[in-house]
Amino acid sequence: MTTTRERSLDAAVELVGTHGIRALTHARVDAQAHLPRGSTSNHFRTRSALLAGVAAWIAEQETRDLSAALSRPFDDLDGFVETFSTAIELLTGPYAVRTRARYALFLEAAGDPDVYGPMHAQREGMATWSRNLLTSLGARHPETATRAFMAFADGIALHRLSVDPQAPVRESVAVAVRGCLEA
């Protein structure tokens, strides 16, 4: 059974992911979640607390939803390309609204460690995962390769979220990974 808090968080993600960060108010979240007025503020007293709650919720949901895709074993470059491509397709397909909300929160959170913290921790986890795999695939300069690959991942995700939702992923990921291994 979904709790009032979870309903509020799901509604907040939906609002931010479809209408932008300015749409995030306690009253709008209550309305979106079909909750009595004031329900969201029972869990998140301030807008800052609501932003922090949404950031942590997104990180938790993404970790849960991507863990299966990212934990598939593989032994070679093609396996890495397939695994990472699947993750990008999930983030920009079925989870596109949540991904848009995450990007909006990143921009909003620059000066708020309570909001930035959970999102940054999740991103660091993804960077560590990518660095380890790029290293295992023979990256000459793993730190540089990881920064370049993470920038590429953000770029392809933003492109699919904003310009071309059907843009092919696998071919681009393959080129990016090969380039990162050579750099």
Rank of each mutant, 00 (worst) to 15 (best):
T4Q: 08
R5W: 02
R7M: 04
L9R: 09
D10V: 10
D10K: 13
V13K: 09
H19D: 14
H19Y: 06
T25S: 12
T25F: 06
A27T: 00
A31E: 05
L35K: 03
G38A: 04
G38T: 00
S39L: 07
S41Y: 08
R45Q: 11
T46R: 09
R47D: 01
R47T: 04
R47M: 03
L50S: 04
L51Q: 05
A52C: 05
G53D: 07
W57L: 10
E62P: 05
E62M: 15
E62T: 13
D65I: 08
L66S: 02
A69E: 03
R72Y: 00
R72Q: 03
P73D: 00
F74L: 01
F74D: 01
D76A: 03
L77F: 11
G79V: 02
F80E: 01
V81S: 00
T83S: 01
T86W: 02
T92I: 01
T92A: 02
G93Y: 01
V97R: 12
V97M: 04
R98Y: 10
R98Q: 12
T99V: 04
A101S: 06
A101K: 05
F106K: 12
A110G: 14
E124N: 12
E124S: 14
M126D: 15
W129V: 11
S136N: 12
S136W: 06
G138V: 06
A139S: 10
H141T: 13
E143V: 13
T144W: 14
A145P: 09
A145I: 14
R147P: 06
M150L: 11
F152G: 06
I156E: 08
A157W: 08
L158W: 07
L161F: 08
V163C: 06
P168S: 11
E171K: 10
V173S: 07
A176Q: 05
A176I: 04
R178L: 08
G179C: 06
A183L: 15
